[in-house]
Design a protein around this nucleic acid. Structure first.
Lengths: 203, 203
DNA sequence: AAATGTATTAATCATTTGATTAAATCAAAA
DNA sequence: TTTTGATTTAATCAAATGATTAATACATTT
């Protein structure tokens, strides 16, 4: 039932939403004009308000999807009882690099917009509690009770997410380009877990 | 000659610029209205155009400063002939955590706006060449010729910068708050170099 | 075919927003 | 003191923008 990119969206409502995803994601809420979305969707401007009431409401629907895409898969992996700590690390790295490679500006979009408005979805998810009680954090504590798990989590996600956040800058400086960036990210699927394990051993 | 936050800015021009720094940084270019800046500066709206011609030009002046603040100190440290590789790592980590702790939304602001417009300042700096010929990268290559320096650099800066980019989200989830965030960042001054060195040894 | 409800369109509104203007104020020079 | 140029202000403009409306087209039911 999740979104599948099969055929071109059939209904007008879905055409608008798909255009909104594209434009909001690229330009952010404030820089996006409803006329941009209407044009991108190939529909009359009035239909946007007809189906979604307002720019704000349409944005919130898109934002909810994007938050889900960025954060929704984290807890399941962290709580997978089958996996060792090392396997969870590998799973997180591999999963996120795949998701972000397919949606490179997802993290910048979500993190930026989260900083501007309060999204109750995130606030009410109690991510802090859920994560700190997760199997992942328990295993982390068993392995290194002298280490604040938050530091480790920040570092892992820093290594995973930061390149995508810095991607436009890396392109601008010539540090990478579209093609070499993809290769780099694939290399990181192996490299980041190796480094994460080294960090776990470091004293 | 650099900016010092001594007394309250004297001239009208500086009052406007200081207000612009504050508002642009918090809301970004598109969400900022010139009237916001005028109000923040306590001046008549027309003075903004009198001194800076346009919102765009004022923004570019602020942006240039912020880019300088974020990227300007990198190359000097990377080329400090006095320092070993380990010392450079320690220097970069310590310096950036200090700068970002004093300007938590600097990286989000710069990276986000860089992704929207082309800033020739960054493009013309040839950061890729300068970095790849730096003493830092040379030392990195000597130590580990099997390792692409870009990966290491991304990871170090991921560990340093990512927490600041994710800060609003971490606040929203309750993962940290203003106070504990500061403590965490101070702990990272010691932790990140330890981890970076462990990564250098990992095979 | 007629009736009914849904979807779409072109035109228009009201506000917001970046920018300008002409007049007023101020300070320094003559 | 008068003059001159720079600074500041209130008022206003034109364009952009989110949203609405009234009319029209379309499809489905009766």
């Amino acid at each position: 039932m999740a979104k599948k990119k099969i055929e071109t969206p059939a209904t007008t409502e879905e055409k608008i939403k798909e255009a909104a995803r594209k434009v909001f994601m690229r330009k952010g809420f404030s820089a996006t004009r409803t006329r941009d979305i209407a044009e991108e969707a190939g529909i009359n401007l009035a239909l946007l308000n007809y189906y979604f009431r307002s720019k704000q409401r349409l944005f919130e629907e898109v934002m909810q999807e994007k938050i889900q895409k960025l954060l929704g898969t984290l807890v399941p992996i962290m709580n997978d009882a089958e996996l060792t700590l090392e396997e969870k690390i590998e799973g997180i790295v591999s999963h996120y690099i795949d998701v972000l490679s397919a949606n490179p500006d997802l993290p910048m979009f979500v993190l930026n917009e989260l900083g501007k408005n309060n999204f109750s979805i995130v606030k009410n998810a109690n991510l802090d509690k859920v994560i700190s009680q997760s199997s992942f954090v328990k295993q982390l504590r068993e392995r290194r009770n002298d280490l604040n798990p938050v530091h480790f989590i920040i570092s892992i996600f820093g290594m995973i997410i930061f390149p995508f956040v810095a991607r436009p800058m890396m392109f601008l400086t010539g540090m990478t380009n579209e093609k070499s960036f993809i290769l780099l990210m694939n290399e990181r699927k192996a490299l980041v877990p190796v480094w994460a394990k080294a960090m776990l051993k470091a004293k």
